[in-house]
Nucleic acid binder design. Structure first.
Lengths: 143, 143
DNA sequence: AGATATTAGTTTGATTTGTAACTAACAACG
DNA sequence: CGTTGTTAGTTACAAATCAAACTAATATCT
């Protein structure tokens, strides 16, 4: 028989998913409405903007995204003229992805929006809570 | 210009999503392979198993799921013979959903699996971290 | 060199999700 | 009553995701 002391709200994958969804809604609305971007597109843009030009493969590894997802996000960002590709001379399979000037502007705007949005979310937490939360999330992600 | 002190790993929606995904994989594998269930199906099953018979609407509210998602999960669970519907006499629009004996067995198994899985995840955290993590997730979900 | 294996990235088709329109039962108002 | 509005749940179509097969370039092995 089940003992009934274990609640859904205490099940980590469930609680994390609920919190992740709730916390994403506001920011998602911003980049969707303002730039017509999807979540993966935003992530790819952010990686390039924050960490500089790199290949699709590198983005896959950094962001733990599947290559088909990245491939499609790159296409979409290219169409929006936020991103440019350049084939590498020394290995023509690989292409270096980088943001266009326009892409950098979008990144800068989203960067500020993300920072402000994060601050708003964190306002409900004490500094200690915020720090421990971060640490826990890192640990769980690494597992 | 952006100041570059704000990292993706510190952006709450991103960090939460990464942790949520990483933490879900193992358990997802279990209910997928063993029972061919989808995430929403598992959630609906869990709600009925843990909190007793209720309407689809009630599940929507409790789990913050859209009614079409619940509708489809209920159909799937019904086909698997894990769940039965019964139209309410006093209002024939509503139907009470409840688990069949087989559904209860599946629930009991998943309940134990979830509990064990959660314990494994939590093993990397101190009791204090675990407590604060829970509190933070609740706060964020409520916003 | 020539066959075979890897690797970076794309395309395709099947599942899954999201959005909006729909049906059927009930409620409220004249 | 009958018209209009609301509610519970389903269906249909579009958008997004996933897995697997594919292309083209490079590496390896004989």
């Amino acid at each position: 028989m089940t003992d009934n002391d274990f609640d859904l709200g205490r099940f980590l994958p469930y609680a994390l998913n609920q919190a992740a969804e709730a916390s994403s809604i506001g920011f998602q609305k911003y980049y969707r409405q303002r730039y017509g971007m999807l979540r993966t597109e935003w992530r790819v843009l952010f990686h390039l903007g924050r960490y500089g030009a790199m290949t699709a493969k590198a983005i896959c590894a950094r962001a733990s995204l599947h290559k088909t997802k990245v491939s499609r996000a790159v296409q979409a960002l290219e169409q929006k003229r936020y991103l440019a590709r350049s084939v590498q001379e020394e290995d023509r399979r690989r292409e270096t992805l980088s943001l266009t000037r326009q892409g950098q502007e979008v990144y800068a705007d989203l960067y500020e929006a993300a920072k402000a949005y994060d601050a708003k979310l964190s306002a409900h937490l004490t500094p200690q809570e915020r720090e421990i939360l971060n640490r826990c999330l890192q640990k769980i992600t690494k597992v």
